[in-house]
Every structure is written in structure tokens, then in C-alpha cells.
């Protein structure tokens, strides 16, 4: 009985609603026609530009890239091989060139290794702990990016140069920092410091601390937690940072130029040697070394693209 009365009331409600809807449909009808008139005149996808504009924009972008990126790259290789393949390899086999390549590799190895450690430590501190001065530390990490490399080099001259703060002490103890490998390494470390930390901080912040907490509650020690949980989670980001850090370490000119002293065969890195040879009108030799740096750039670019793809995969949120 009670159910029936319930049904009855709901049907009467439906009926009373019905005329109301009829009216509302009838009223806006003329307005609909006005609205329809517009799309006919401009019937195109609103998310894209008309053909000619699209063409101009794409052509501009390609032209710009060709002139400013592809053309210089072609010129580097063309000049390097302008006297033939034999001259190219002869230039690379020069003792001075070999010394520069060796020095560059050594400095890159030192600075990348140290920045790997510093970067992980800094990123770890920033993303996993709360402490006073955190914002300041984040700003400080970016400092090398915002300072001109020449100034970065000058800082070390002021510190370790003959007239610098530690200059006399260093001289008295016969320690060579400036115009030697340590100075070049220091300048490079300074300039390339942000790469690893910058690559890791957002990644580690996004991943949070829960997996580490889980590991610790399962009995893992700090080191076990780092090597078994944290490191695997950040490995692609870490490689990405190392890659960029390495590219910059090998290619750094300004800061290294200030502290190197340009001692031939001893303190010239590849970028410095490129400039010296060019100034001496040894174009083939100069561009041969430059071509090595250009190749490094190309390899870095490819590796970077692959790593970015990996990073995207690693960051796929494990949706609930």
C-alpha cells in the first residue's frame, strides 16, 4: 500500500514537470539559429592557426635554427676537413692537442665525480629534510648559473693568486693551484655545480620520503636505504644531471681561461686550445679540436633525449 502511494506521487511530479520543460525548449529556439550562423563563416579547428600562418611560423623556426645552429655546426666540420682527412687526424695527433684532450678528460672526470657527490648530498638535504635556511641554500645552488664564468674564475684568482688571500701561504708551501690542474678543476667544479643538484631536486621532492620511511621501518640501515631505494629511484635523473654536467665541464671556457694561465701543452683545455690555434691562423687544427667538442655536443643531445624519455617513464605517477 505505502509503496503504491509513493509511486503515485512521483508520477504526478513528473507530469507537473513536463509542461515546464516544453516551454523552456521552445523559448531559446531563435537564439540557437543565431548561434549557428557563426561557425559556418569560420569553419575551422579553433585549436590551430590557418594554413599560411602555420607555414610562416614553421618556416621561420626552421630558418632560424638552420642559420644559428645547423650552419655553424656544418662550418666546424667543413673547416676541420678542409685540408683532407689526413690533415685532420694529424692535427689531432699533435702533442699539444693530445695534452689538451687529456687535460680536458681529467678535469671533467674530477669535477663530474665531485659534483655527483655534492649534487646528491645537496638534493638529498633539500628534498628530504626541513631546516632553516633551506630556501637560501636552493638560491645558492643556482649562483654559478647566474654569475658570469669570468667572475667565477676571478674569484679563484683572488683567493689563490700570488696577491690573493692564500697566495703567500700557498707559495711558501709550494702548492700550485692557479695555472695548474687544481685551479682548472676548482673553476670547473664551481661552474658546473648546479647541474646534478638541479636535475635531482624536483625529482626527489616529487618522490617524497615515504619509500625511505618504509625501508627504514623494514629494518634497512641508512646506507641500505640509499643504495637500495633512493638511488634506483633517482638513477635516470642522476644520469641526466651527470650528462649535462660533463658537457659543460668539457666545454667550459670563461672560468677556465682566467685560472689556466695558458701554458702550452700543460694547462690548455680543449676549448682554450681551439681559441689559441684559431688566433694563430691554424684553422684546420683549431676546427679539428672544435669538431671533437661538437661531436660531444651531438652525443650529449642524443643521450639527453633518451634519458628524458626514461625520466618521463620513471615519473609516471602510480595513480591510485
Amino acid at each position: 500500500m505505502s509503496m503504491q502511494t509513493g509511486l503515485a506521487t512521483s508520477t504526478t511530479q513528473l507530469r507537473t514537470y513536463a509542461p515546464a520543460t516544453d516551454v523552456s525548449v521552445a523559448a531559446p529556439a531563435p537564439r540557437l539559429e543565431i548561434a549557428r550562423a557563426e561557425p559556418v563563416t569560420a569553419h575551422r579547428n579553433p585549436r590551430t592557426e590557418p594554413g599560411p600562418i602555420r607555414f610562416i611560423i614553421i618556416a621561420l623556426a626552421i630558418a632560424f635554427l638552420s642559420v644559428f645552429v645547423v650552419l655553424p655546426l656544418v662550418v666546424v666540420f667543413a673547416s676541420a676537413f678542409s685540408k683532407g682527412v689526413v690533415a685532420y687526424f694529424a692535427a689531432l695527433a699533435e702533442p699539444e692537442a693530445l695534452a689538451a684532450i687529456k687535460l680536458t678528460l681529467l678535469v671533467a672526470a674530477i669535477s663530474v665525480t665531485l659534483n655527483l657527490v655534492f649534487g646528491v648530498v645537496a638534493a638529498w638535504a633539500i628534498s628530504k629534510f626541513e631546516f632553516a635556511g633551506k630556501t637560501f641554500l636552493i638560491t645558492l645552488i643556482d649562483l654559478p648559473f647566474s654569475v658570469s664564468p669570468v667572475i667565477s674564475g676571478l674569484v679563484f684568482v683572488l683567493l689563490f693568486g700570488a696577491q690573493g688571500y692564500f697566495g703567500s701561504w700557498l707559495q711558501a708551501h709550494n702548492v700550485h693551484i692557479l695555472f695548474a690542474v687544481p685551479g682548472i678543476a676548482l673553476a670547473t667544479i664551481f661552474v658546473t655545480f648546479p647541474f646534478v643538484a638541479r636535475a635531482l631536486i624536483p625529482l626527489m621532492q616529487e618522490q617524497g620520503t615515504q619509500e625511505e620511511e618504509a625501508a627504514i621501518s623494514l629494518g634497512a640501515s641508512g646506507l641500505q636505504t640509499f643504495f637500495r631505494v633512493t638511488l634506483p629511484n633517482i638513477k635516470w635523473g642522476l644520469l641526466y644531471g651527470v650528462l649535462l654536467c660533463n658537457a659543460r665541464a668539457m666545454g667550459e671556457f670563461g672560468a677556465v681561461s682566467v685560472v689556466s694561465g695558458h701554458i702550452r701543452g700543460e694547462t690548455n683545455t680543449m676549448p682554450l686550445l681551439v681559441e689559441i690555434l684559431y688566433n694563430e691562423y691554424q684553422f684546420v687544427a683549431s676546427f679539428a679540436i672544435a669538431s671533437l667538442l661538437a661531436m660531444l655536443a651531438l652525443i650529449t643531445l642524443v643521450a639527453k633525449t633518451i634519458l628524458e624519455r626514461r625520466l618521463d617513464e620513471a615519473e609516471v605517477p602510480d595513480g591510485d
Binding site: Q210, E213, A214, I216, G219, S221, N233, D318, D320
Partner: peptide, 20 residues
Amino acid sequence: RGASERQVGFVFQHYALFRH
């Protein structure tokens, strides 16, 4: 004692499984 020595099982709201 630290968390790693307490032998306490902990289950997190967002699972915190090791994703790798």
C-alpha cells in the same frame, strides 16, 4: 631505538611500495 630497530610493521596510506 630507531625505527629500523623496533621491528614494527608500518603500512602507509599511499602504500609507499618500492616502485623499481
